[in-house]
Write a protein that binds this DNA or RNA. Structure first.
Lengths: 226, 226
DNA sequence: TGAGGGCAGTGACTTTTGTTGCGGAATGGC
DNA sequence: GCCATTCCGCAACAAAAGTCACTGCCCTCA
């Protein structure tokens, strides 16, 4: 693993090279396969994780087996921040969506880093704030938008990340995953996708969703408020 | 306003007396009446607010007028942290639920404080993490519990804050407010409260809800998962 | 004191969401 | 290539949530 990787992590962006090497000494590297768990809700907190490569989902699960994704984290992003900084138990499950490599920094080591390099604390404040912002948005989406609206909004947001310039965007994602992301059941996702297809906003071929009319999708979102 | 008030604020708990007086110089004091707005969603960010006395609600609103409360903040708690630390626009509305006094510290002043007193940054990390934890819980409640379950859980949580030892707990709160807290409509709250009353979990007299059977309420929550 | 405003209560109805139960297609491992 | 598993499509039904319309009850305040 290249130490330059740490430049990607906003926490460490402003450190000089010597400091970066110092930081790197303290990590433990962990690799897991697709679908493998990294952390379980309620477990004690081992420390802060940073995704090196791959993708993980952070989610909660009901006793009935229904799942709600709280966030997904890719390269350069961190998870398990909450228990590290508030001292409580792990609040959610984390599972790899793809073969994934993460590094683990124990809470004690992290505290030392913060003391030694104050910029790190600054970066972390920014990251936690940004995460709060996205959770506030998720809360209001769940409460104020219909399922159709949440799906449309998710597709638009996702497309934004993949092809900000617009144009046709394909998307590979199981309906089950989509359901867990927008807080509903798989069959409902299927039904709403069919509706969106009938309205001409998107196309489906062999499980791949393609956005063909962003405007219309945006209208769906606007009309989906409760 | 007594400078000792700032001891209540976790951000400043660890500062010595001289530092506290320094901090206090930098605040602007603002008082508002019940129902008055303090911040509007989308406005630019003026700085960090701390509640001195009273109570505020932080919420988002749909174009149709439906409201979702994200958090309520009482004495010693802060709001508007998100835009202060991530630099974006204000993510939610804030309105006083009671006559309320807050102090406002500009972003620039706050940055100086952080530089001068590193403990402040530490305290803030803990606070943001705790807030993230409660939002993760709110998200999963909205996605994984029925309305009845969310109401029951809210009542239990509220009672916890008021009378941790148990016993009979009364609660004055309009159904409209309760609806905005648990993410539903007023009439639905009325219906579910009636059901809970019929099941013997609580009583209602003249708009005051009294919890009479916590066990049963807890069972309702457990049975309300999707 | 009476008129208006906000809050609560409720029945009837509609819409949305969730569930069940399939069959069939795709896909990945062997 | 073949088999098992996972994913998708869809219809019909059930349950939950939301909406509407209207009533009555305090309050408060002009």
């Amino acid at each position: 693993m290249d130490w330059k990787f740490f430049r990607l992590v906003p926490y460490f962006r402003d450190l000089d090279e010597a400091a970066l090497r110092d930081v790197q000494q303290r990590f433990r590297v962990i690799s897991v396969g697709r679908g493998e768990p990294i952390q379980g809700e309620g477990e004690p907190c081992y420390g802060l994780y940073i995704v090196v490569s791959g993708l993980v989902k952070v989610f909660r699960m009901s006793p009935e087996g229904r799942e709600q994704v709280v966030a997904t984290m890719g390269p350069g992003e961190t998870f398990n921040d909450v228990p590290v900084f508030d001292g409580g138990p792990t609040p959610a499950n984390v599972v790899a969506l793809e073969p994934t490599t993460v590094v683990l920094l124990s809470t004690a080591e992290l505290r030392q880093l913060i003391m030694r390099y104050p910029q790190v604390a600054n970066g972390m404040l920014g990251i936690l704030a940004a995460r709060l912002r996205s959770l506030v948005t998720l809360v209001s989406d769940l409460a104020l938008l219909s399922v159709e609206g949440r799906i449309a909004k998710f597709l638009l947001t996702y497309a934004e990340g993949v092809a900000p310039q617009g144009g046709v965007v394909g998307l590979r994602l199981t309906q089950q995953d989509l359901a867990a992301l927008v807080g509903t059941a798989r069959e409902v996702v299927a039904r709403e996708l069919r509706r969106l297809e009938e309205s001409g906003a998107l196309r489906r071929d062999a499980g791949i969703i393609t956005i063909v009319d962003r405007e219309r999708l945006q209208e769906v979102v606007s009309g989906a408020f409760k």
